[in-house]
Amino acid sequence: MELLVAIMVGVLVAASVHLMLARNVLRFIFGLVLISNAANLIIFASGRLTPESPPLIAEGETTPALDAANALPQALVLTAIVIGFGLFAFALTLVYRAYQNLGTLNSDEMRVAEPQAQKPSTAGQVAEKQYIARDADA
């Protein structure tokens, strides 16, 4: 099963890399979600996969069953999931906000910080100018 999970994680990573390389920042966010999942699976599987034996101590016992699953990667993954979610929520807000201000989801057109001589699109240009003008007003 581990080998198959490894192959599947490879597909997940490939898909997320392809998404993260897209110009559309929303796609990038999708890639971020996928790659978090892939990373969590890698941590989880590297502690080996143990079917149907959670790391719990039975009533009246003091240690878990001998064949219990590895608890350490589970704890790590749990933390990773939550942090991954925090990152995702923030990134999504950022994308939303960027769209509100710049009127585009195309990362190539988001050039307020690093302006280029030739702008790829006039719409982006207009948005940018307005954004800068508004900043100057404020």
């Binding site: 581990e2 080998l3 999970v5 490894a6 192959i7 994680v9 490879g10 597909v11 997940l12 990573v13 490939a14 898909a15 890399v17 392809h18 390389l21 892939a38 890698i42 599987a45 590297s46 080996r48």
Partner: peptide, 19 residues
Amino acid sequence: ALLAVAVGTVTTLVMVAVL
């Protein structure tokens, strides 16, 4: 696409090596 496949393959190989 090529880079995506490469990263995916490398990840799988690293994981297999770890396992």
